[in-house]
């Protein structure tokens, strides 16, 4: 899995237009990335990543794309 895959997963979860999300994006940038939107991201990551993210509690408070990517790298999903 590569970073672009994560961008696609998050973008789809938040129902964003293609290209709207980048590695520099964070929660404040999109109306749909509120607390409910973040739950959608967590579900999408759990579904689409070949592995179990439920043990990665840090993802619950990761409020930017770069933080999510960094955490997934730490756990060898990227």
């Amino acid at each position: 899995m590569i970073v672009d895959d994560i961008l696609k997963i998050i973008s789809t979860a938040l129902e964003l237009k293609e290209g709207a999300l980048s590695i520099d994006s964070n929660m404040d940038d999109f109306e749909s990335w509120d607390s409910l939107g973040h739950l959608s991201i967590l579900v999408a990551l759990d579904k689409d990543i070949d592995g179990n993210i439920s043990g990665i509690s840090e993802l619950a408070t990761a409020d930017s794309v770069s933080k999510i990517v960094e955490i997934l790298k730490q756990y060898d999903f990227l």
């Binding site: 607390s35 973040h38 739950l39 967590l42 759990d46 179990n52 993210i53 439920s54 043990g55 990665i56 509690s57 993802l59 619950a60 408070t61």
Partner: peptide, 13 residues
């Protein structure tokens, strides 16, 4: 309630 933390707990446990 921290919904995201609670959700991650339920997802695993």
């Amino acid at each position: 309630m921290n919904g995201a933390n609670i959700f991650m707990f339920t997802l695993g446990q």
